[in-house]
């Protein structure tokens, strides 16, 4: 695998504030890396350093082997970047805006037309090409920003919150787009939407207070959840005690909790010891004993919980508030 982005002890201080504090990270071709973290964790700052917008206080960033500080123009040629909020020149139309970007990217003639057509088609903005960007809806603006980033088919794609402000259909579409393009690129997306990480990323890192706290595939991260492989079941209230007794006797079961919510049914949450799958054994047991179960579902464990767990370090009340609804 070719290493497209390599960060070594990358650090950025704003006065006394350590926005990014010695991050080591590498991203290979074919990877879609999800950059997770509460607001203010240093995600955007890190991206701004990789794209050459901010100069690191310390450490270095290599893009396709090129040092971003020493040869910024060459590094920037290899990067497609969607800045946070997808800023575009509001008084231009998408057509003239993409034309400008294509020119700066060194595309001309038929090549330029083809690149623009392809990007327009990919993000589906064909209908608004001649409207000033400032009159477009948020979703369209974001897609114009995306078109700009993918226009020159860059080997490295860095997208800062690419689906922020999009409706569910548009989100789905953007995720598909990232999937399609991921094969021959190194893609980094920042987000605080955790389902997005599970939907598109092959790898996720969690960053908080400028430090890298976790690195793994989304599945690996989910596995850290106490609810990983837990089972939810609904049973009639009159048999609930017998069911709990039987389940607790089963090997591999960590705990059985009764959901306290009022209902005609009792809901039980059965966690597994060490996160191993217990659903098959549990199903067999229930059938054996002849307990009637009205609902039975396996829990994968929410990335949310893992995220909160990891990012909630000392004196982080301010950041965990944001993580709560993310």
């Amino acid at each position: 695998m070719t290493e497209m982005i390599a960060l070594t002890r990358l650090t950025k201080h704003f006065g006394p504030l350590k926005a990014v504090d010695g991050i080591d990270l590498s991203v290979a071709k074919g990877e879609v890396l999800g950059f997770l973290g509460p607001n203010g964790a240093g995600k955007s700052t890190t991206m701004k350093m990789v794209t050459g917008f901010l100069t690191p206080t310390d450490g270095e960033a290599l893009v396709d082997g090129i040092n971003v500080v020493q040869d910024p123009v060459a590094a920037k040629r290899r990067i497609g970047y969607l800045p946070e909020g997808a800023p575009c020149y509001g008084d231009m139309t998408p057509s003239s805006f993409l034309g400008f970007i294509a020119e700066v990217r060194g595309l001309s003639g038929a090549e330029r037309r083809r690149a623009i057509d392809q990007a327009v088609e990919r993000v589906e903005i064909g209908g608004v090409l001649q409207q000033p960007i400032e009159t477009l809806s948020k979703g369209f603006k974001r897609r114009v920003g995306l078109a700009q980033a993918i226009l020159h088919n860059p080997p490295v794609l860095i997208l800062d919150e690419p689906t922020d402000g999009l409706d569910p259909n548009q989100k789905h579409q953007v995720r598909n787009l990232i999937h399609q393009m991921a094969e021959d690129k190194a893609v980094v997306i920042s987000t605080h939407i955790l389902e997005e990480v599970e939907a598109v990323c092959t790898r996720a890192v969690i960053i908080a207070r400028g430090k890298l706290l976790a690195d793994g595939t989304p599945e690996e991260l989910v596995r850290r959840s106490p609810l990983h492989n837990a089972v939810h079941l609904d049973v009639a209230p009159n048999i609930v005690d017998a069911v709990i007794r039987d389940i607790e006797a089963l090997a591999g079961v960590g705990s059985v909790q009764r959901d306290s919510s009022f209902s005609v049914k009792a809901t039980l949450i059965v966690t597994s010891k060490g996160g191993a799958p217990i659903a098959p054994a549990l199903a067999a047991l229930l059938q054996d004993k002849g307990h009637e179960v009205s609902d039975f579902k396996t829990e994968k464990g929410a990335l949310d919980a893992v995220f909160r767990e990891i990012t909630r370090g000392p004196n982080s009340n301010a950041v965990s508030g944001d993580a709560g609804h993310a």
Partner: peptide, 14 residues
């Protein structure tokens, strides 16, 4: 003000 400076300064332009 509009943030487009981030776009401009991350294009391959000195």
């Amino acid at each position: 003000k509009s943030g487009t400076i981030e776009l401009l300064m991350t294009l391959p332009v000195s």
